[in-house]
């Protein structure tokens, strides 16, 4: 990450190694890091090679969990459902977020408006899920009432395997749109205003400026926000857990929910850990690949 900062000239005359005081300062955080990140990561890796359950301890069983995983149709289904979710969620969310960010940037400096746009992000996933679950209720949800009012058919948003995962993806677009838009908005603010002024003098249209100035200069920020969003999106769980619980007929059994079920409904922590290891590798790969193709480390502003 950011190259060794703070290597500025040292205060003269001091024999400088702050090791002891530094250890003091990082001690509490290190306890947390070792106990709840480092150790469990190693332990999780170990679990994936055992038949660990919820109550006792497990025995080493080699790569049996992984072999089982590759032959498990429900696992592949979960992966596929998750990918569908991510594509819909991220596709819609990023396009809308860029649009909202640009609108905010070009129209207003109002903090209140930005605050309003951010509101859904403040609400817990569970609350968001329940509100939309209610609003999309087949018989008396307001969305279906309106659909019928304007002459369309009612939709069983959560009850139909064809629409369930898209519904969940769009609900979470609602929750994260404002947050993503404000992150991009912050990126837009870093673009020097003179570029727009110069372009305007040359008679460039707003449309052209968007493509020639905004998007290229926003790219590093966009790449980072995209990576964070995609990695986060793969971890969809809450919405599924309180609405469809994986149904109807596996249509929303996302990978996180599948891991959860293996661990806490089937008590098969070993197998659940193997899938989690797979998820770690997958997400690291996706993040690496995305940053690579979007060359986020090189800014056109430099």
């Amino acid at each position: 990450m950011a190259a060794a900062p703070g290597t500025a000239p040292r205060t003269r005359g001091r024999p400088r190694s702050d090791l002891r005081i530094a250890l003091l300062f990082i001690a509490p955080a290190s306890v947390g890091y070792v106990a709840f990140y480092l150790m469990p990561a190693l332990r999780g890796l170990w679990f994936s090679f055992t038949d660990q359950n919820l109550i006792g301890t497990g025995d080493f069983i080699g790569t049996a969990n992984y072999e089982r995983m590759f032959g498990d149709d429900l696992f592949w289904n979960a992966l596929w459902v998750t990918v569908q979710y991510v594509l819909i969620n991220i596709g819609v969310q990023m396009v809308l977020a860029i649009a909202v960010a640009v609108l905010l940037h070009r129209l207003t400096r109002s903090v209140v408006i930005r605050g309003i746009v951010l509101l859904p992000y403040l609400v817990a996933n569970v609350v968001v899920a329940l509100v939309w679950f209610w609003m999309s209720d087949y018989s008396i949800g307001i969305v279906n009432v309106v659909l019928e009012e304007i002459g369309l058919d009612r939709v069983a948003f959560f009850g139909n395997p064809a629409t369930a995962i898209a519904t969940i993806a769009l609900i979470n677009v609602w929750r994260f749109l404002g947050y993503t838009a404000l992150l991009l908005f912050a990126g837009l603010q870093m673009i020097p205003q003179q570029y727009y002024e110069a372009a305007a003098l040359d008679g460039a249209s707003e449309w052209r400026m968007f493509w020639r100035i905004t998007l290229p200069l926003l790219r590093p920020v966009l790449a980072l926000v995209l990576v964070i969003s995609v990695v986060g999106s793969f971890q969809i769980f809450d919405t599924v857990a309180v609405t469809t619980e994986g149904g109807p007929v596996n249509a929303t059994r996302v990978i996180y929910y599948y891991i959860y079920q293996q661990a806490f409904e089937r008590f098969d922590l070993g197998y659940a850990s193997a899938i989690a290891v797979f998820l770690v590798v997958l997400l690291a790969g996706i993040a690496y690949f995305q940053l690579k193709i979007m060359r986020s480390d090189r800014s056109d502003l430099a």
């Binding site: 150790m39 999780g44 679990f47 919820l54 971890q235 769980f237 998820l279 770690v280």
Partner: peptide
């Protein structure tokens, strides 16, 4: 410390449950 940022929470939360 930073690498922990890339780990999906569920991976460490399974062992954390046992802990």
């Amino acid at each position: 410390f930073l690498t922990a940022l890339m780990i999906p929470p569920i991976f460490v939360q399974l062992p954390n449950f046992i802990l």
